[in-house]
Computed example of a mutant assay.
Amino acid sequence: MFPKFLLKKKYKEFILLYVLLLIVVTVFIQRPIFIYIIKPDYLQNFSSSNFLAITEIMNTLLDVNIAIIIPFAYRFVNIWQRTNQKTVELEKRHLEHLKDDEFIYLKVEKSLQKVFIKDIIFIESLKNYIKIRTIEKEIVVYKGLSAIEKILPQNKFLRVHRSFIVALKFIDSFSPSKLLLKKHSIPIGRKYKQHVKEVLGYF
């Protein structure tokens, strides 16, 4: 009850029910147990004015309050942690969704052309130019392969050759010497073979 009311921001209801719970537990449970069970057997020298003595009831309220708060606090922290974890996971999924809509502008002739990162299959170096193969078309851009490698997400693209960068999600099959992406055969350079092997996990 405690965590649910707070999580739903029903603060008034929580305070009212919590105070009511304290009174009920103190007057009808804790106080009778102390007066009729604990005091006669274990505290025979303890003097009490009457059953409803205000000072003793207040002390009992404090004891009950502490006894209730500890498990409630523990339960609340657990629920808060689970809720926070779910929030983090949702934010992560949201960010991943946003990343799918990432794009870059590339200079093609005299204009800038938008290219969605999720559509890039591979990029090939052509000396001073690069050829970007997307799902729908090929784009030739005056840019170096190393320069575009720096702006691509490292968790989505892999340099496999001095002349090729490939999108991991489009790799259909691979061997120690080449990869197949959408019917395009891409060689694996000797310099990059060990890194490719570690990323793709082949032996």
Rank of each mutant, 00 (worst) to 15 (best):
T60F: 04
G201H: 07
F5Y: 12
H94I: 05
E138V: 07
I57S: 09
G144Q: 09
K9D: 11
E91G: 14
L62A: 06
P3C: 05
D101G: 00
V140F: 06
V24C: 09
Y18F: 13
Y42H: 10
I35L: 05
S111T: 11
L16K: 15
D100A: 07
E102W: 02
K156L: 14
L62Q: 08
L6K: 10
R82H: 12
K86L: 15
P32A: 10
R190T: 13
Y18N: 11
D119R: 01
L112W: 09
L61W: 03
Y74R: 04
S175P: 01
F116Q: 01
L62D: 05
I188D: 04
F28I: 00
K131W: 00
R93A: 13
P32L: 10
K99F: 10
G144C: 08
K4W: 09
K107S: 02
A73C: 06
L145A: 01
N128G: 05
N155Q: 13
I104D: 00
V108T: 02
V160E: 05
R75L: 09
L158H: 12
V25K: 04
L90R: 13
L168C: 13
Y74G: 08
Q44V: 13
K193W: 08
K86D: 13
F28G: 03
K197D: 02
K193R: 12
N59S: 09
H184W: 00
K114V: 06
Y202E: 07
L21A: 12
M58P: 00
L52W: 11
E13I: 15
I171H: 02
V166R: 04
I148Y: 04
L21W: 10
E96S: 11
V199I: 13
L145Q: 03
I33W: 02
T87C: 15
K150H: 09
S175Q: 01
N78F: 11
G189T: 07
R75Y: 10
I35F: 02
F203C: 13
R75I: 11
K127A: 03
K183P: 00
F174S: 03
E109P: 06
V19W: 14
D41C: 04
I123A: 02
I69R: 01
L168K: 14
L20Y: 13
K127M: 01
H94S: 08
L43R: 11
K114Q: 05
Y18M: 13
N84T: 11
